[in-house]
């Protein structure tokens, strides 16, 4: 591999990693607030990817409205999921594992809704959604899709950081993810905070769904990409969204490099080996917050 090719792969890897980071952060927000792995996030992602697809293919909308539609759909579906699958258990103060079970069930349910509406075929976003396909700089040819998804991710992260650092609701979400009981004792309506967390996470899921749909292809199983978010949020370390984002970008880079060197077939084997090596060397995750179970 020469230098140009490596540079090319780095750009591809970064854009793939950026989408993974969006997925992972949407996933990790719920992990932080409610302390369980919300696999239903994949269903949210899938539905909004198809909503964006409908908007672009049926109504010929341009790129930015499509992303916005994906975002709004994601938020609505995420709140619906909260109402259907998590609210009752939360009211009964059920154990965390029940959330996990219902969230996986919701993932399967949303996937099947997509199968009923669209059939289990592969679809692609219309080609004229993003006009120019490649930019050539010297020998380097960069896909515009990748650049745009990178840009959208950066904008989304900027907004997320603004919301979490500056707005009241963002600070409330952070407080709730630190300690739910104390937050509610401070007079914050934790029910609202949880819904807000789902709205934010759903928006992230919606954007990542549309971007992932554009950069690959659409099938009802698209939601299963949420496992990348799961991997990144565990590797990234508990309670740190930055660590999660870094882990996701690293995952994207490694995947792209593996596919270009040894092919997609055996890359899960290598990723598994790397994962074990990482956990043995650095069990506290990327962020480095030392943590013991219930200590």
């Amino acid at each position: 591999m020469d230098l140009i090719e490596i540079f090319q792969q780095v750009i591809n890897g970064l854009s793939r990693g950026a989408i993974y980071a969006l997925i992972a952060v949407g996933f990790a927000i719920i992990v932080n607030v409610l302390k369980f792995s919300n696999f239903a996030h994949g269903g949210v992602l899938g539905i909004s990817a198809y909503a964006g697809y409908l908007a672009s293919s049926q109504f010929n909308l341009s790129f930015i409205p499509v992303v916005l539609i994906g975002m709004v759909t994601g938020a609505i579906v995420a709140v619906l999921v909260e109402f259907i699958a998590f609210r009752w258990i939360r009211m009964q103060k059920g154990q965390l594992v029940y959330f996990f079970v219902t969230s996986v069930t919701m993932l399967m349910l949303l996937e099947q809704i997509l199968v009923i509406r669209f059939g289990s075929f592969f679809d692609t976003y219309p080609y004229d959604l993003i006009k120019v396909k490649f930019i050539n700089i010297g020998e380097l040819s960069i896909s515009v899709t990748y650049l745009i998804s990178l840009a959208v991710t950066i904008v989304a992260f900027g907004l997320l950081i603004y919301v979490f650092k500056k707005t009241k609701i963002g600070i409330a979400i952070r407080a709730a993810s630190n300690d739910m009981t104390t937050t509610s004792l401070m007079g914050i309506n934790t029910g609202m905070v949880i819904i807000a967390a789902f709205v934010v996470s759903g928006m992230m899921g919606g954007i990542s769904g549309v971007l992932f749909g554009i950069s690959t292809s659409l099938s009802p199983q698209i939601g299963q990409v949420v496992v990348k978010g799961f991997i990144a949020s565990v590797l990234g370390g508990l309670g740190s969204l930055t660590g999660v984002a870094v882990a996701a970008v690293a995952l994207g880079l490694i995947e792209v490099f593996l596919v270009s060197t040894i092919g997609s077939g055996y890359s899960p084997v290598v990723i598994f080996a790397l994962m074990i090596a990482f956990l043995l060397l650095r069990p506290q995750g990327f962020a480095g917050v030392s943590f013991t179970d219930k200590a």
Partner: peptide, 19 residues
Amino acid sequence: IRQDFFALVTFGFGQAVIA
């Protein structure tokens, strides 16, 4: 190590076996 690492490692193991 932590519980969620067990879930992650077994998940990776499953994917590797299928590959």
